[in-house]
């Protein structure tokens, strides 16, 4: 555990809190991609299958991971529930149209072809890493289409980008401090995932320095 990793995890939790806050305070889910949220739920459910056979009391880190894993699954399921049931009327159904099969199918292929060990859980785990790296795309697509979003929604995406950036720093840190730390699947997928936020960040900071809502050209 290092400060980059801890900061990344906390920022990830914070981003979900910001999203929930946006939904609760505005009582609407406009501008939020249900497709991205469902992909995240899929990512967490497939990545954290190990919850079923890991003793959370094995170590401090296992307990830490278990708490976060349950939190991520539960909170993303809750957001999907809010979007599909409670605030269904406000959902941007006409604009949230990115075809997720273009993301799921390649992620399945990549997971099947490139994984660490030839076991069911390892292949599903690798799929979840590839899936997460592109899961934000429907949200960015919706953003492009609507052109302007509420502040909290843009803060949410910015926090997610920040979480990814901190994870990259965490890997650099671990690469130099831990012997044999060679996690190439995470590195490649994580770099792609972080790079996807580059364009968003550009406009985010451009609009924030002018004190405006996020507006895309």
């Amino acid at each position: 555990m290092n400060l980059f990793r801890l900061g990344g995890d906390l920022l990830h939790v914070f981003s979900i809190f910001v999203l929930t806050l946006k939904i609760k305070t505005s009582k609407n889910v406009a501008g939020i991609s249900l497709r991205t949220q469902q992909l995240y739920l899929l990512v967490f459910c497939t990545r954290y299958l190990d919850l079923l056979f890991t003793n959370p009391f094995r170590s401090g880190l296992t307990m830490y991971n278990t708490v976060f894993k349950i939190l991520f699954i539960a909170s993303s399921a809750y957001i999907v529930y809010l979007m599909r049931k409670k605030y269904k009327q406000t959902y941007s159904v006409k604009d949230d149209t990115f075809r997720v099969e273009f993301l799921i199918v390649p992620a399945c292929l990549a997971g099947t072809l490139f994984h660490y060990r030839n076991t069911f859980f390892e292949i599903v785990w690798a799929f979840s890493i590839y899936m997460e790296s592109v899961a934000i795309i429907p949200q960015l697509y919706l953003l492009q289409k609507t052109g302007e979003v509420e502040n909290l929604t843009s803060h949410y995406i910015a926090c997610l980008g920040g979480y990814r950036a901190l994870y990259l720093l965490n890997w650099v840190w671990r690469f130099f401090t831990e012997p044999r730390y060679r996690h190439w699947i995470e590195w490649i997928a994580g770099t792609i995932q972080t790079a996807l936020y580059a364009d968003f960040f550009y406009y985010y900071f451009l609009n924030k320095t002018k004190g405006q809502k996020l507006k895309l050209p």
């Binding site: 990830h12 190990d50 991971n65 894993k69 991520f72 390892e122 994870y167 965490n170």
Partner: peptide
């Protein structure tokens, strides 16, 4: 083994 790629991250 499991520890080698123990997936100790989230």
């Amino acid at each position: 083994n499991q520890q080698q790629h123990g997936h100790d991250e989230l």
